[in-house]
Design a protein around this nucleic acid. Structure first.
Length: 473
DNA sequence: TGAAATGTTGGGGCG
DNA sequence: ACGCCCCAACATTTC
């Protein structure tokens, strides 16, 4: 028999449960990717992420060809394209890795209504349905969720599925070319593909004193490459969550110091946060439309297009915010600490609806994921599950001084601040005129004056949130 | 996975 | 020598 392996966000041959199931089911397997016009037209899709995906498909196709197979690409509604391919091949089953976003679940329901679709695990280590409180309801607080997650049997290295050897795929099937547009800009610091993902995981978590052993402290530093930067690979399944967790646990066992143990535990927690937000979006799909907390649905947002444009362009006058926003638009990636800082600034200094920021992030992040991105924004806005309390407002100057103490990060992305002395680099508007002259950085001319006064903005936001709470209680 | 406002303490300058 | 005040430094509360 012939089986279809429907590739969606699992662009890998190793530890791929859907692929393994397809190979176990039939002697011939057809790897297929469906370009879904509805997805391509979405305002939540961006060119850099699309380019990363297409380049990743080319790598996958090359890996498949090395095994006597290839990737079949079709364009159209998945249920129609898969039905056509089923007719062409006589396939009696379609295997795919389960995905849990509202769009993915609707799409898969449409396919399953007429075709033999079978979903396998792999996007997360623990399927979102599997982690529930004793009364059967889903967790909405991270800590108990993570406790339950850790109580389940952990994946072991021996559980990781090897890449298949030869894959027999019928030769006569037509395929469209993998799109070569948009092109991945050279500024994007991620080489796509499964091989690169594994190289990075190894560099991060293996060897003597690898970065993961310093992760607990370094992960917050904007000026240090202390994070794994694996998110784009996890986003498209060039790496499985299971592979990442196994690596974290093996690094944990190898940890010789308290710092190293702390680092590996902290990184594992970040992987569990990812699964937490997949589960939240699965159980509460309405969070894509509105706040999780009903009492914060009526915040009187400022619909300020100009302020939003300044935030997008990295021209707010707060260096740490602007540097991060320019890093995002140029490279498609942003440090996690920086994501919190710029999100806090948009929501709590500019009082702009977090959904505007959520959309901008999805348009620019190579790793943009509906669950994690939504969870992060609702966390910052204080509207989500286990969110930051509404009165927690980041001070962009203090955050800059704490996590970019020498201003190296800020100067990297804001060359106009190159000569600004360290004591002013996170608050250039305090430079005396003579210092501005010396630094060749006139505030309001070479670099913007602050878009809002932080102290004033903080109070405006506290009042606005208080108003929203009052309305609904 | 904050920060500001407010409260407390204790060392040292100074009359 | 003593009490008073100033104000870091730290702690606690509040948003």
């Amino acid at each position: 028999m012939t089986t279809l392996w429907w590739v969606r966000r699992d662009l890998r041959l190793k530890d791929n449960q859907a692929l393994s199931a397809a190979l176990a089911h039939g002697e011939r397997v057809v790897p297929v990717f469906v370009l879904d016009p509805a997805l391509l037209a979405s305002p939540y899709v961006g060119a850099k992420r699309l380019a990363f995906l297409f380049a990743g498909l080319r790598y996958l196709d090359a890996d498949l060809r090395a095994r006597g197979s290839r990737l079949i690409v079709r364009t159209g509604r998945p249920e129609e394209q898969l039905a056509a391919l089923q007719n062409e091949t006589g396939a009696d089953a379609i295997y795919a890795e389960a995905d849990y976003s509202p769009y993915a679940r609707q799409r898969d329901a449409n396919v399953a209504a007429t075709l033999p679709l079978r979903l396998a695990g792999g996007l997360t280590v623990q399927p979102p349905e599997a982690i529930r409180k004793s009364d059967g309801t889903p967790y909405t607080v991270f800590t108990p969720f993570s406790r339950q997650w850790k109580a389940l049997p952990p994946p072991q290295a021996v559980d990781l599925l090897p890449a298949p050897g030869r894959i027999r795929t019928p030769a006569e099937l037509a395929s469209q070319p993998i799109p070569d547009q948009p092109v991945l800009p050279p500024e994007v610091p991620f080489e796509p593909g499964e091989a690169e993902a594994l190289r990075r995981l190894e560099a991060f978590a293996q060897g003597t004193r690898p970065p993961i052993t310093r992760y607990a402290d370094d992960r917050n530093r904007l000026d240090v490459a202390g994070t794994a930067a694996l998110s784009p690979y996890l986003r498209f399944g060039m790496l499985s969550a299971r592979q990442a967790v196994v690596a974290a646990q093996s690094a944990h066992r190898a940890a010789a110091t308290g710092e190293a143990r702390q680092g590996t535990e902290t990184w594992l927690n970040e992987l569990i946060w990812r699964e937490f937000y997949v589960a939240i979006l699965h159980h509460f799909p309405h969070v894509r439309q509105t706040s999780f907390r009903p009492n914060l649905r009526d915040i009187p947002w400022e619909d300020d297009g100009d302020a939003f444009a300044a935030w997008c362009a990295g021209r707010t006058g707060y260096p740490v915010v602007d540097a991060a926003m320019r890093q995002l638009s140029q490279t498609g990636w942003m440090h996690n600490r920086a994501r919190m800082i710029v999100a806090s600034f948009l929501v709590k200094d500019l009082l702009i609806d977090w959904r505007w920021g959520e959309r901008w992030f999805m348009q620019h992040l190579v790793d943009g994921d509906p669950a994690a991105n939504n969870g992060g924004w609702q966390w910052t806005a204080g509207t989500g599950t286990d969110a930051a309390p509404y009165f927690r407002v980041f001070n962009p100057v203090l955050q800059g001084q704490k996590f970019d103490p020498d201003g190296a990060f800020v100067r990297q992305w804001l060359p106009e601040l190159a000569r600004v002395p360290g004591r002013y680099v996170h608050k250039p508007w305090e430079m005396p005129e003579a210092v501005q002259q010396d630094a060749q950085c006139i505030v309001g001319q070479d670099y913007p004056a602050p878009l809002v006064d932080h102290k004033w903005a903080r109070e405006r936001t506290l009042a606005a949130y208080a108003e929203a709470k009052e309305k609904t209680t």
